[in-house]
Every structure is written in C-alpha cells, then in structure tokens.
Design a binder for these strands. Structure first.
Lengths: 207, 207
DNA sequence: TCATAGGTCTACTCATTAGTAGATTGCTAA
DNA sequence: TTAGCAATCTACTAATGAGTAGACCTATGA
C-alpha cells in the first residue's frame, strides 16, 4: 500500500483514540463557554452547534452538563497537581518553593481550564459534585500552606498565619482569571512573575 | 387621640418612605439570592415567595431582573465610594491612606452588597449594564492606583507597577467574598486587618 | 453475510423563569 | 361622593434549555 494513502479502516486502538479526541474537543469548547458566560448561562445546545454536532452526542460522550463541568474542573486541577509534584521534587527553601508554585498557580489561572476552576462556584454543583470539587481545592490549599509552614520553619518566610496567607495569595493570583486578556500585550508568564514579585515583597518599603 | 393608637392613614411622605422600604427589602432579599446562587440561577419567583409577594410586585418596584442586580451593584459600590471619600479627607502618607482604604475594601467584601459587586461577572449584564458596572469599578481601581502613586512619590510605598499592584491587592481582598462565613469565629474587621497586614509586608522576611 | 456495537441524529418532553396584560382594591384629595 | 392613582394580584405567554426515546447507519468481526 503506497505511503500516501491512509487507510480509512481503524483499528480498535485508533477508534479509542478518536473517541478520546472527540471527548476532549467537547470539553475544550465547553470550558470556553463556561468561562465566557458562567455555568448556568452556558448552554450545551450552543456547544453542540459550535462543534456542528447534535446535543445527544455530547450526552453520549459525557453524560450530563454537570459532568462536563466536573471534567473541566478536574483538568484544571490536574495542572495544579502537576505543578505541586514538580515543586515537591525541587530542593530549596520553603520560600523558593512557594515562589515557584505561585508562579505556576498564576500561569494556570490564565489558561482555560485553570480559569474555570477559579470562576466556578460551588453552588453551581450538586452536593456530590461540590464535595468532590472542594476536596480538590483543599489539596492545593493544603499544599500551599505546607510550603508556607516549611518556609517559616526554615526562616525563609516571615512568621505569619499560614492559612490566611494561603488564602490571600490564592485570592491575589486568582485575579487574572477575571481580567486577563489573551490579546493583551503582556504574556501570562510575565504577569505571573510580576504579581508574585509584588506579593513577595509587600508594598511597605524595605528600609 | 390617645398616644397608643397609631393612625392607619398615611401622609404623602410616609407613603414615599414605605415605598422606599419595600424597594430596599426586595434588594436585600435579592442580593442574598444572587450571592448564594449567582445571577442566572437566582429567580425572582423565589425572591417574591420569600417576601410573600407576587412577582409583578417586584417588577412594579424595580422594572426587571437586570435592574434589580444593578441596584445591588450600585449599593455595593456606594460603600466603596464612601470609603474613598473618607480616606481622601484623611491626612497621612500614601501608605497610611492606602492601608485605611484596603481595610474598608476588605470589610466591604464580606457584606452582602459588596460581595455581590465582587461575584457579579460582567457577562451577566447587558452591554449597557456592563458599561455602567465597569465604570463604577474603574473608579475604585483608579482611586487605589492614585493612592499607590502618592505613596511611591512620598516614599512610603516601595516603587512598583501601580496598576498591577492595585489588581493584585484588589484580587487578594476579594477572596473573602468567596469563602467568608458569617457564622465563623473571626469577625470581618479582624480578617480584613490581618489580610492587609500580610499584604503590606509580603512574605519575604525583613532582614 | 449477518449480528452487533459504536456513534449519531431527529424529534420530542418537561421544567423553569423572565416578563406582561389586565383586573381589582382601597386610599386620597378635590 | 367620586375620580384617579398607587399597589397588588391572578393568570397568562414565550423562550430557553436540560435531558431522553428511539430510529438509523456503518464498520467490524464472527
């Protein structure tokens, strides 16, 4: 069979791969809708239209609207989890590792799935979904807290209420999820770095 | 007429006052619904049920759902504007005034109307409403930026990108709008102060 | 060659909710 | 006493959007 002819017959594996691709495509379109309008105002009818498929096809791949959202949230959290794993493997002071994580955290908040995590409110979810979501978020938060505590212990971070600090830092870095414009002049990595710098130093002048 | 009998007949002024009271009551119930479920998921039918009135009565007082929301937003922004006015009247370095404003800002984010301002997304609004809302928010943001610039000029604030700093600070102080629990052990004023302290100093130890 | 599983569609149902038409009631003021 | 206005209601409409039933096609594999 000449090289340039691609067989239209798919193996079992190829079919599984295509299925996965389609699932992903739904999520990628859906997450943009959720981010643009919020979960309730976004409609699966519209997602279907954009993908030029019918609504039942979405249901075939993902079950229901909440599951679509939860898949998006899981993807967003996976990225943070990966960042945490990377940082955990790093050596360095608590301060250094916290900074490294914060930069990843901020960058993530400018990506579609990361934004979705930030902008999704628990009350959009069912009791079960909310529990799942809360658990995922707590993981990240605990991780940040532990970095802060490490830093305080090794003297690289100023003594402070680790829990409140984690909330304040996360809050500050969540900001871009709401105002970041991909068409703006500054790349996400730069914004992330500058914000972390600002938070690191505070605004009181160092004498 | 004996003291203890209150006349059931109302003067023009009394009627105007009662009308205002009713309008306020609608807004107070509505803002709680918006905060609890988000604008789209909140229904005026439910607001009406809670107030034991019918839906057209809400429309009689406020016109439509978006106007209800915008009134809530305006009330939330009024509080910030008042804080700005107070701070403007204050003397002190840019640093001191910025701190004073930030504390008010944080406290506001734990009140119903303030929360609504933070949690409402522009995309819930019509083009016109969104423009109005953006203008109100820009006011606060500009004010914060000008405080920061004052502080940098008078040496009380470390040199930094004022715009980014304003975003980062606002973001951090918006946090409580999402997690603050009125039944929790810590009063809002305390949380506000601690967060501002943390942001003031940053987390890098001062040598 | 035929049964089956995978994938997709059309054409619904059902529930919710924003918003309105128009009747009604009762107070106020002339 | 009555015209008229303020306030409120019942009973709608119209639109939207989640979710489903069931038909149908096509490739695969026995």
């Amino acid at each position: 069979m000449p090289d340039e002819i691609v067989s239209p017959f798919r193996t079992r594996d190829e079919r599984a791969y295509e299925r996965e691709q389609k699932r992903e495509a739904v999520l990628r379109v859906a997450v943009k809708q959720f981010n643009a309008k919020g979960f309730h105002a976004a409609s699966l009818d519209e997602v279907a239209t954009i993908l030029k498929i019918s609504k039942p096809t979405i249901y075939y791949y993902l079950g229901n609207k909440e599951k679509v959202l939860i898949e998006c949230l899981i993807r967003g959290m996976e990225l943070l989890r990966a960042a945490a794993t990377d940082v955990e493997a790093q050596s360095g002071s608590g301060f250094d590792r916290l900074r490294a994580f914060l930069v990843r955290f901020a960058e993530n908040s400018m990506e579609d799935f990361g934004r979705c995590v930030i902008r999704t409110n628990e009350d959009a979810l069912s009791k079960d979904g909310a529990r799942q979501f809360r658990a995922l978020k707590a993981e990240t938060n605990d991780f940040m807290q532990s970095l802060i505590e490490d830093g305080i212990a090794d003297g690289s971070i100023a003594p402070t209420d680790a829990k409140l600090a984690a909330f304040a830092l996360a809050g500050a870095l969540n900001g871009p999820a709401n105002w970041y414009d991909p068409n703006g002049p500054r790349p996400p990595a730069e914004i992330a770095r500058d914000m972390v710098d600002f938070l690191t130093e505070g605004f009181r002048p160092r004498t």
